[in-house]
């Protein structure tokens, strides 16, 4: 029984980080209709900057703040200098569908090269902001640590802040309206292009947090966030790609599910487990768990 509970807790901590990555993907998808593969690179670059600050100042949280700022800036930059230009040139036909996807993949490679040139390819790590020693329960220790508590708390705060932003503010309303119905939003007086850039920047900042948290007890390299992107994407698909709440639920389910596989079956099956979930969702409920009846868009 104890093993079940500790697996649940670890799964919650893992899943909460997936949730951030998956929200970053959902935000971009619903405003721009692009699965942003470059998000792994954007988050990785933000994390390198956060690491740099965290290791110099020896304050993890200062590093986190810089990672958020860097992520937000990079996200806005990618939309403003990259996506806007791209959409101006590829407005219809197959090019409009394929070009953005290829572009984000290219961007991922580009960011990777820039990071490699700047920081080198070797693994880096920082001192975790809290103890990674597991709590003592009875006679033994469980793998769940203070750091995991901190991760769950940080993610919860960010999720609450995002929920308030999206549900309670005019900016949030503008972001939702522009995502659901860009033309109506425009006719209501919203500057939709600018709103979209703000959406990309929020996604970038959230991605930066995901990168910092997942790496707080791990190594950072130009490739180290790829798996996070994959799991974040699977979580987003479980949630239907449109819904932030859905993607959070998807991420928690995925995090807990994969941790169970890890603890009870073995490391080798985690990756297969993730993809099996992806394929199952696409076969059984392609619009995601939050879909009710017909989808608004194909």
């Amino acid at each position: 029984m104890q093993k079940v509970i500790e697996t649940l807790l670890i799964g919650l901590s893992t899943g909460s980080i997936y949730a951030l990555m998956s929200i970053a993907l959902v935000l971009v998808w619903r405003s721009t209709r692009v699965v942003n593969f470059a998000q792994a690179g954007q988050a990785m670059l933000s994390t390198y900057i956060g690491f740099e600050i965290a290791s110099r100042s020896e304050i993890f949280w200062l590093g986190l703040v810089f990672a958020i700022a860097a992520g937000a800036l990079v996200g806005a930059g990618v939309d403003y200098f990259f996506m806007r230009v791209l959409f101006k040139h590829a407005t219809s036909g197959p090019a409009a569908v394929v070009a953005p996807v290829i572009a984000t993949l290219g961007l991922l490679g580009l960011i990777r090269s820039i990071v490699g040139l700047t920081w080198g390819g070797e693994f880096r790590s920082i001192k975790a902001p809290a103890s990674t020693d597991g709590f003592t329960v009875g006679d033994g220790t469980i793998p769940f640590s203070t750091l995991d508590v901190l991760i769950i708390a940080t993610v919860s705060i960010i999720l609450i802040a995002l929920a308030l932003l999206f549900q309670r503010t005019n900016l949030g309303l503008a972001l939702r309206a522009s995502a659901y119905a860009p033309e109506i939003a425009q006719l209501a007086g919203i500057r939709t292009a600018r709103t979209r850039t703000i959406g990309w920047s929020i996604a970038g900042g959230v991605g930066g947090v995901a990168g910092m948290l997942v790496t707080s007890n791990n190594f950072l390299s130009p490739y180290s966030l790829d798996l996070l992107l994959v799991f974040g994407f699977i979580a987003a698909v479980i949630g239907g790609l449109e819904s932030m709440a859905g993607s959070v639920i998807g991420a928690l389910v995925l995090g807990i599910g994969l941790t169970f596989i890890l603890n009870y079956v073995g490391t080798s099956l985690v990756f297969i487990g993730g993809f099996s979930v992806l394929i199952l969702v696409l076969l059984i409920k392609p619009d995601g768990i939050m879909a009710k009846g017909k989808a608004r868009r194909a």
Binding site: L173, A174, R176, A177, Y180, I184, A185, L187, A188, I190
Partner: peptide
């Protein structure tokens, strides 16, 4: 009927003055 179905009636109205 250009309303945004995902939003509430109130949100649709607020949208009109969001600028």
């Amino acid at each position: 009927k250009s309303v945004i179905a995902e939003l509430s009636v109130k949100e649709n109205l607020v949208l009109g003055g969001i600028w």
